[in-house]
Design a protein around this nucleic acid. Sequence first.
DNA 1: ATGGTCGACATTCGA
Length: 260
Amino acid sequence: MRLATWNVNSIRTRVDRVLAFLEGSGTDVLAMQETKCRDDQFPALAFEAAGYEVAHHGLSQWNGVAVASRVGLEEIEIGFPGMPTWGEPAAAEARAIGVTCDGVRVWSLYVPNGRTLEDPHYRYKLEWLAALRAAAGGWLAADPDAEVALVGDWNIAPLDTDVWDMSVFEGATHVSEPERAAFRALEDAGFAEVTRTFVPQQYTYWDYQRLRFPRNEGMRIDFVHASPELAAHVVGAAIHRDERKGKAPSDHVPVVIDIE
DNA sequence: ATGGTCGACATTCGA
């Protein structure tokens, strides 16, 4: 099975590019983030015409997560147990959807941005990650042999080499130690990030602003965490940098793993 | 010299 994750930054703007990627890359299961639409606005018919079932969760123009699959799609779950809320009145955001595709439990995740270290959104981000770790640890405790993939836009650059210039990120989110610790804590829960061994150095995101892509000033913030049983069957990974090129690209590119 | 964006929606916010 070929599994990919991609922050598409509006599915309505990007649907043609996403379908072209699915066709060209041989991807069986695609987790998407930042669809930026409600369920009734999602272009489901276009995916179905291409042979993919889709589960989408979107509440407004913000966030929105989905999974498209041509190898089955079952047990749709909106949000994970204990997922923190945001806003006034407090409400769950559309940042997590879980589905089972050919025996693999796939979670499409859009981790809160954090905005700044002083912003309440930053604390929300850390709480969100801690709750995810607790939930995911619980899934593995219940079934140590489960094949689980936690994929998406983590909004964390775990290593200094995951940004083009650390001096630009002094006092910024995405690189702070608490965020990196929260990312590593998934390992304590039994998960392993499985793309870096196959792709040691490659960004997954380049800001639209300030010619970041032409200058290759990017960030690696999109990752795949795999449970032990799944990690044992991952035989390859790729980051499709070329998807940042051409007409109307997303600011993120697809991250792909191959499961044997 | 030094800034250069994009998307949804409403004329601003989020990234």
